[in-house]
């Protein structure tokens, strides 16, 4: 108990990027997320772990209102981004998603050239004044996505022609190109081989310099490797949230311990 208060005090002193208070999510009659409270810090990697169907992806998609595209989905409670409620009617979900970028489970490059894939976001948001600026944005994003050296000679080639790992880094570069403040990643490595996974993880660690990163993962090793904070979800509840090292070495809740030692999940 003493540890918990220490931890909370520690969190309070840092810069909170996203704060979720009493979030409930319903799919039709199904209560998918129950009473979740999470505070996501700036310039930190936060990992969501938990067994399949525990609601971690659903919760992630609430953070940039991607659940709006699902008819039967209903969200209650407050999610504050920099102290502003993102479910407020004044907030434009389209603007929000430019600020809170997302990388998906399966690499999903558009059937366009590599250049156009990256330039897509800046173009629709009007981030570049001219072609030269757009070129700059594309190069900078590809460099941040750690893929520039591999594709700089074939920016006109279709993005779909890259390998799986390259495609995923392209998608990360594409998300970075709109200058988001938060980057949500929904199991970004589940379709990749170990080498590509290592490259993406390295990239996530670099992205931490500039962004707040939230990553959903099935791999506990991955969570341990890349994240500073970990949240464990089970059956729609947030069971435990805290420092990654703390969660993996000294979990408070028996369910967390069962999961990370492989007894459930």
């Amino acid at each position: 108990m003493n540890d918990m208060t220490l931890l909370e005090r520690d969190v309070d002193t840092k810069n909170i990027k996203i704060a979720a208070n009493n979030v409930q999510v319903y799919y039709g009659d199904t209560h998918a997320i129950k009473d979740v409270n999470v505070q996501i810090e700036d310039k930190t990697v936060t990992a969501f772990i938990g067994p399949s169907g525990c609601g971690k992806s659903t919760f992630l998609r609430c953070l940039n209102r991607m659940n709006d595209t699902i008819d039967i989905c209903r969200v209650e409670g407050d999610i504050l981004l920099d102290g502003e409620d993102i479910y407020d009617p004044k907030v434009d979900p389209v603007q929000l998603r430019a600020k809170v970028g997302m990388v998906f489970q399966k690499p999903n490059p558009f059937p366009k050239s590599i250049y156009d894939n990256i330039a897509y976001g800046p173009r629709i948001h009007g981030l570049a004044r001219n072609k030269a600026e757009l070129d700059d944005i594309v190069e900078k994003s590809l460099r941040r996505g750690a893929i520039w050296d591999e594709v700089k000679d074939r920016l006109d080639a279709p993005g779909t022609g890259l390998s799986g790992g390259q495609q995923q880094r392209l998608c990360i570069a594409r998300a970075v190109a709109t200058e988001p403040e938060v980057l949500l990643m929904d199991e970004p490595c589940s379709a990749l081989d170990p080498i590509a996974t290592a490259q993406v993880e390295e990239l996530i660690d670099e992205l931490r310099q500039n962004y707040s990163v939230v990553i959903v993962t099935h791999s506990m090793q991955q969570a341990a490797r890349v994240s500073q904070k970990t949240a464990f979800f089970h059956l729609g509840n947030l069971v435990e949230f805290g420092e990654t090292g703390h969660i993996f070495t000294n979990p408070e809740d028996p369910r967390t311990e069962s999961y990370i030692t492989g007894r459930i999940g």
Binding site: N64, M102, F104, F110, R174, T178
Partner: peptide, 19 residues
Amino acid sequence: AMRDGSLGLGATKSETVRQ
């Protein structure tokens, strides 16, 4: 996944459809 990718970048529905 194509639509999600585009919407996730902050594109509107019609931008997603068109582009």
